[in-house]
Design a protein around this nucleic acid. Sequence first.
DNA 1: GTGACCACACTTTTT
DNA 2: GTGTGGTCAC
Length: 771
Amino acid sequence: MYYLQDLNPVQRQAVESGEGPLLILAGAGSGKTRVLTYRIAHLIARGVDPWHILAITFTNKAAQEMMDRIISLVGSEARNLWVSTFHSACVRILRREISRLPNYSRSFVIYDAADQLALVKECLKVLNYDEKKIAPKAVLAVISEAKNKLLDVDSFEARAQDYFQEKVAKVYRLYQRKLASNNALDFDDLIMLTVKIFWENPDVLEFYQERFRYIFVDEYQDTNHAQYVLVNTLAQRYRNLCVVGDDDQSVYGWRGADVQNILDFERDYPEAKVLKLEQNYRSTQKILRAANEVVKHNFNRKEKSLWTENNEGENLVLYKGWNEHDEARFVVRKIRELSDLEGRPYADFAVLYRTNAQSRVLEEHLMKEGIPYRIFSGIKFYERMEIKDILAYLRLVHNPADRVSFARIVNVPKRGIGKSSVDKILEYAEEQGMPVLDALGEAAYIPGLGSRAVNTVTSFYQMISRFREEAAKGIPVTVLTELILKETGYLDVLRAENTVEAEARIENLNEFLSVTAEYDNNMEEYLEDAELQAEQNMLILGGFLEQVSLVAEIDNYDEGEDAVKLMTMHSAKGLEFPVVFSVGWEAGNFPSGRSILEQYLLEEERRLCYVTITRAKERLFLSYAEQRMLYGRIQDSLPSRFLQEIPPEVIDIESGEKEILGRVFGRQRAEDRSWQPESGITDSGSGKQNSGTVWGGGSSFSRDKGWQEKSSPVVKSNPDTFRVGDKVEHPKFGRGIVMAVKGEGLAAEITVVFNGEVKKLIAEYARLVKL
DNA sequence: GTGACCACACTTTTT
DNA sequence: GTGTGGTCAC
């Protein structure tokens, strides 16, 4: 085959190896996507009907790309392939099969995190549980975890261990009932209920097993138990399961992903062939060296060594910023420099951070410098208020049982239907067991509703009904959306506001209309696919809502755009960039403070570190800030331990000293001053400069000892001063790490973790010694 | 039923 | 420091 020439021997083997289970352990940048696409193309070329192939990717964007590549390899007959994410694939199956479950219908909607939270709160209220004692978010987390493990309400309840879990079980039961009565599914239901249908309906399972004779799963290390069961159930009949992954890149443990799935593949399929892709085509030797060395510190991993024939490359650069603004200025300055000197387009650069909150400062400085950028995380487009509002309208039109959407927009814009009326309506609908929208039609019968309220409610009902009629005619989503925006007065209200914010909201709504327009244009394709002619017209709207609820921010990633990309380390997985900046390498931020206590959490952070480093092709700049504004407070921190794990000979240290001195005597002085601690937690509080590292010789990196503090010419820290991250020793508790410092001087309350035990100590009395 | 004001939680990562 | 959600007065 002509295309096999671009492959190395192992890759080629992976592409050509025949039927049966196959595990491909693919290191970062080893060309796994290429192998996957070629293997699928190869299969088709050998005469396998694309109809029989299912490929699961991690994002919708990856799915789209893979589809395009395969089509370019084997032609348009590949259209019959299913390439999608787990969630999209399940929605597609559920649209056909959900009537197998009682209480759901095809017009179901998908609830996002905010909708789920609203529903859980509703449940807590009904059960009379105090939100203060039982945090809705915690409940949701437990429910989600249960669903990821395929524990339905009954099995969860049976296993409930303690008081909290028993309460959660009650909420879970009600929550699930409410979801059904709203004809809604949450993200985890998509997987769990699909599996349930397979298990309870052998004919359905057999149909899909016959259909999907060849199954591919990318990023297998990030599958959770439910996804694992789904895939393995489907693959049972033909056993043509090909999974690709890298245990070193498993970074979604916190949402239920289980690395064990990939580690156990050979146990699950003893006849499996196993191939390792270890040649990296992406990064320079030095970048790869750094990545390898860091990840070696993990104990729980499969031993492997990634190598490359690429150039040695330049050293990594570590920048010591003295606060987050200094750090951001460094990034901006470097981007300017590399773009001016080397003529790099802005699209070459990516800035990666651990937490979304860090994007703000970067954004501020990029904007100031007029550098085009794009953020792929943070407040998502579909989470904006106005977008959620218009979506709620569309969802209610599509699914008249959707109480959460109803409650959201029944009084938006204000039309005099207040909280008490809404409660009465919801209660009535529940009692009658009817969709909320139908209840509105009977407003006159709802007990306790005044005659004024009956009128307003009725006219609201008539308005939504009109929208429903239009939707049933199959008008484009764009036209429907425009109609809603106009008829509800939503747009008028915004216009009348005449503020910058309202302006931005209108702008966003226009953006939304371009999303709907794009969808409408692609509609033909969808209709062909929709095998349910009877409900076709409603499917137009349904298809749109479905698409919208399953997009991730990263799916909007546009390579062609000449802009610096900002995103979390997690979002960057699967991507690569010529030049990578990664900021905020401080203890407590990265690795995150919550991970320090548990070895397995720390190892996941370290894998995230590995992922981050291996995103870079040519240059990698790391940075940290000695002080960072967190929570409206200034916090001191130490460099991340991961920095010490990078071999010193491949990294150069640059510090902000010169820059800072220049600024101190220049115009920036006042500005920078404002970040100095005024009070609070940062130091011993006497107004002196903090520990002096920035000003004096600072800390330094030594080959055999790692990070070392040079004695500072300014102020040596007072022995009573502890900082977050300090290692300490206590006569009774032994060694520990400082987690938090509250207050100052002798009265400071210091939180220390000793051997997994958290203690709060007062500086004056605890005989703590800094190590 | 509406709007203003205050308290407080929030920061890990997302399909 | 910011955004949300709850309470209170009109």
